[in-house]
Write a protein that binds this DNA or RNA. Structure first.
Length: 105
DNA sequence: TGCTTGACAGAAG
DNA sequence: CCTTCTGCCAAGC
């Protein structure tokens, strides 16, 4: 992955995250795949964590495929709940109910 | 250069 | 449902 591709990847990730509608969620894998690097789901998380500016994006609406939230980031849950996202008794989000996927306008 | 670390995903127990 | 393992890959040491 060239530095330029990395830059493109980061831009795509941030762009997609910024488009997630309130009350919906998407997954790391979906974002990675849409950005053109299906096997880089972990890079999506790493990007959101270490990229300054991601904090102003709705990155709390990004969860893993099973509906689990980011470990060590308890703030994420209240943020989602305040948007109407439903949680299962075990702390997982009803991902099938709120899942959103990127689109071209 | 080589081993360890994750805001992951999927399968197994 | 929850924990652990393996595959994955860029970053850190």
């Amino acid at each position: 992955m060239t530095p330029e591709q990395a830059r493109q990847f980061r831009d795509d990730v941030l762009n997609i995250v910024s488009q997630i509608p309130s009350g919906h969620v998407t997954t790391y894998g979906t974002i990675a795949a849409w950005a053109g690097w299906p096997s880089h789901s972990r890079m999506v998380g790493r990007t959101l964590r270490y990229t300054p500016g991601a904090e102003q994006l709705p990155c709390h609406r990004v969860v893993n495929k099973e509906g689990r939230l980011a470990p060590g980031w308890s703030r994420q849950r209240p943020l989602l709940e305040s948007e109407g996202v439903q949680f299962r008794p075990n702390g997982y989000v009803e991902i099938k109910k709120h899942l959103w996927e990127p689109e071209w306008e």
